[in-house]
């Protein structure tokens, strides 16, 4: 790679309304199998990005909390060293990569992931005939026995590298990602600008700026996984009042 990127995401919990637009966008961008009732009941539903919902307090004094969870693309990923065939590894752009054609389906990685963001294809994915032509040709359809997870829409990153860097000889910045629709599907779909994607190595990017925000924290930071996804804390004036009592 000509430029040294470090892709990452900042998620502002304070803005999230739990609308699930990111979940739907991800589902259609990445050829994710349809989550039937059976699959959900078996706890085998696929959600590369999911909205976790928490209740705080008791009725009527209750608050709903939403938290988008996706692969954290850890710099020190617990899923990587346990793979016996190197099907998951860390590339030099900060991505935790799953190589489908190398995967033999041991599921060690999913068991070792503290964020529960890896999904195993227990069955061959099926789509109704009329939905088959909406599959994204840039993304492999994973067959039975393969582990899959969020890729940060690497197909769009590749497209950015080819179209912006190689074809036009320009640098990939926030503006290019946004105007050319090269942000990950979840980021593009988010109506309240919760999810911000970009290059941490680009000092002018929004992610670089937001990563120094005073509200920032990482999920399970104490485990030492060093995720490339940064969360910004919910602003709750009442909660702060309680703290100061």
């Amino acid at each position: 790679m000509a430029n040294n990127h470090k892709w990452g995401m900042v998620i502002d919990i304070d803005k999230c309304t739990g609308c699930q637009a990111c979940v739907v966008a991800c589902q259609s961008e990445n050829n994710i199998p349809i989550n039937t009732e059976d699959l959900v009941l078996q706890r085998r539903a696929f959600q590369w990005i999911r909205i976790e919902r928490y209740w705080e307090g008791t009725y009527p004094d209750i608050k709903a909390r939403f938290m988008p969870i996706l692969c954290q693309h850890c710099e020190n990923a617990p899923c990587e060293p346990v793979c016996p065939v190197y099907a998951t590894y860390h590339n030099n752009e900060g991505l935790n990569v799953q190589v489908y054609n190398r995967c033999i389906g041991t599921r060690y990685c999913a068991n070792n992931c503290p964020y529960q963001v890896r999904f195993f294809n227990y069955w061959e994915p099926e789509w109704p005939e009329e939905l088959k032509s909406q599959l994204n040709p840039d993304v492999t359809v994973r067959s039975r026995g393969i582990m899959e997870k969020c890729t940060f829409c690497v197909q769009k990153i590749r497209r950015a590298q080819v179209e912006v860097e190689q074809r036009d000889g320009e640098a990939i910045d926030d503006e290019q990602l946004r105007t050319r629709n090269l942000n990950p599907a979840c980021v593009q779909a988010c109506p309240s600008d919760v999810l911000v994607f970009g290059d941490f190595n680009d000092p002018n990017s929004r992610v670089a700026e937001l990563s120094h925000d005073e509200r920032h924290y990482k999920l399970f930071e104490h485990l030492g996984t060093d995720p490339n996804v940064i969360y910004l804390k919910k602003i709750d004036l009442e909660a702060e009042d309680e703290d100061h009592h």
């Binding site: 590339n91 991505l95 990569v97 190589v99 993304v139 492999t140 890729t151 690497v154 590749r158």
Partner: peptide, 10 residues
């Protein structure tokens, strides 16, 4: 040229 897996496999 790069030989990173994710150049071709994704």
């Amino acid at each position: 040229a790069p030989t990173d897996c994710v150049i071709c496999h994704y």
